[in-house]
Amino acid sequence: MSYQISNHKKRSTSRRLANGVVLTLSSIALLAVIAPSIWIVFQILHKALPHFGLSVLTKSGVGLDGGLKNEIIGTAVISIGVVIVAGSIGILSGIYLAQYAKGRFASILRAASDILAGIPSIVLGYVGYSALVVGFHWGFSLGAGVITLSVLVMPYIAKTTEVALRQVPINYIEGAEALGFKPTRILSRITLKTALPGITTGLIVAMAISVGETAPLLYTAGYSQNLPKLTITHSPLGYLTYAVWTFYNQPNKTALQLSYDAGMVIMVLILLLIGISRIIVAQTQRHAETRR
């Protein structure tokens, strides 16, 4: 009897031990997962801040020296272009996929969107280069960069729009129909309005992706140290990720500093965009709860 009890105790000790070991290892895993994001952000700040001055933001690049004004404006122009091009197409196709899509045609379109989302960004960059820069004789240009990047984020905007529209409660739509609304009016006044926070979040995330992407732009937008000209073709322009990629391994010390400065500006912009999208989500969740 006593033997059995001690045996039982022993087993439960080993079980508890296993439990403890797994919990400890998992906690270490969590720390290991969180640590790099903090490390990277602090490392960029640590390298960029000590020599960061306003002149970095107000001067354009001169050779391996100068500032980032041309790149900052270039990134802004490209991101706005992507939001306009990919945003309009993405939102429209999200509307179609959520509201109208049916049958085989729709599933083919949905699959195409999924396939597009899986194509590596450098492959899109290569195709953008051969088709737009060389094939269409656009040269390195704003148009080639924006279109290539738009193709990259389009599936993402379509998906977030579709999900946001699908989450609109059917009661709203039925209520509107009971009041005699026409289908187009239901879409614009009820469905889209209710789904607006979700769609906006998708657009903001797409903007964050545009700020951080490099590979699709290198051979489409090219590079220039002049301020961007607002012509669609034959107008190479600079952008922040180019500065990080090109200046990080130059022997010149000012180049390395510019690389870190650009990295910091990119991180600040992306953190801002993530923050805005979180505020939108938090606001809508609060509204949803009070309505309930």
Binding site: S37, I40, E213, A215, V244, W245, Y248, G263, L271, I274
Partner: peptide, 12 residues
């Protein structure tokens, strides 16, 4: 945050 860090910053 980790998902939002661009590839080129990871590279740097």
């Amino acid at each position: 945050l980790l998902a939002g860090i661009p590839s080129v910053i990871f590279g740097l």
